[in-house]
Simulated scan of single mutants.
Amino acid sequence: MVRKHVIVSGRVQGVFFRDTCRSQALEHGVSGWVRNLPGGEVEAVFEGEEGAVAQLVGWAHTGPPAAEVRDVEVREEAPARERLSGFEVRPTPRGGA
């Protein structure tokens, strides 16, 4: 079980990045969440089997067809004590658009 925390920058909001990310995660059996950030980036956490999480991280480098990914910052984290279940689209943090 691995966990990756990613921040994706570029033209990644308003292009169905979060919805497509959720679909990809569910297709690959990856748990976690995704949300827009106030600065225009997308933040996501992927947790699951190493190969499946690697596929999601790879997908984040291109995103959906309308996206223009400029950079992906990836941090490895310890898996959650209580395993994440499902994959959710979270709201933008307060102070954001």
Rank of each mutant, 00 (worst) to 15 (best):
Gly48His: 09
Lys4Asp: 09
Pro38Ser: 12
Arg83Val: 05
Gly10Ile: 02
Gly14Cys: 11
Gln24Val: 06
Val69Asp: 03
Trp33Leu: 04
Arg35Thr: 06
Arg35Asn: 03
Glu82Lys: 12
Arg94Ile: 07
Ser9Asn: 06
Val6His: 00
His28Ile: 00
Arg3His: 03
Pro38Asn: 07
Gly96Cys: 13
Trp59Met: 08
Gly40Asp: 13
Gly96His: 06
Ala67Val: 08
Val12Asp: 07
Trp33Tyr: 12
Val6Pro: 02
Lys4Leu: 08
Leu84Ser: 11
Gly40Met: 13
Ala25Arg: 04
Ile7Gly: 00
Ala78His: 08
Ala54Val: 06
Gly58Tyr: 02
Gly32Ala: 06
Val6Lys: 03
Cys21Gly: 01
Ala66Lys: 01
Arg22Cys: 05
Gly48Gln: 08
Asp71Asn: 10
Arg70Asp: 07
Ala67Gln: 07
Glu68Ala: 07
Arg22Glu: 12
Gly86Ala: 10
Leu84Gly: 05
Gly40Gln: 11
His61Asn: 09
Ile7Arg: 14
Leu56Glu: 03
Val57Cys: 02
Val45Ile: 12
Asn36Ala: 11
Arg22Gln: 14
Asp19Ala: 14
Val89Ala: 10
Leu26Ser: 04
Glu41Gln: 15
Phe17Trp: 02
Ala54Tyr: 03
Ala66Val: 00
Asp19Asn: 07
Ile7Trp: 05
Ala78Arg: 14
Lys4Gln: 14
Val8Ala: 05
Thr62Cys: 02
Ser23Ile: 04
Ala60Val: 00
Val53Thr: 10
Glu88Gly: 09
Gly51His: 15
Gly86Ser: 08
Arg18Ile: 00
Ser23Asp: 14
Trp59Ala: 04
Leu84Gln: 12
Val69Cys: 05
Val89Glu: 14
His61Thr: 13
Ala25Trp: 01
Gly39Ala: 13
Gly58Pro: 00
Val30Phe: 10
Ala44Glu: 06
Glu76Met: 04
Ser31Asp: 15
Gly86His: 12
Val6Met: 01
Pro79Cys: 05
Thr20Gln: 06
Trp33Arg: 07
Leu37Glu: 15
Thr62Pro: 00
Arg81Ala: 15
Ala44Ile: 05
Gly10Ser: 03
Glu43Gly: 11
Ala25Ile: 00
Ala66Gln: 14
Val34Leu: 09
Val42Asp: 11
Ser9Phe: 00
Arg94Asp: 14
Val2Pro: 05
Glu41Asn: 15
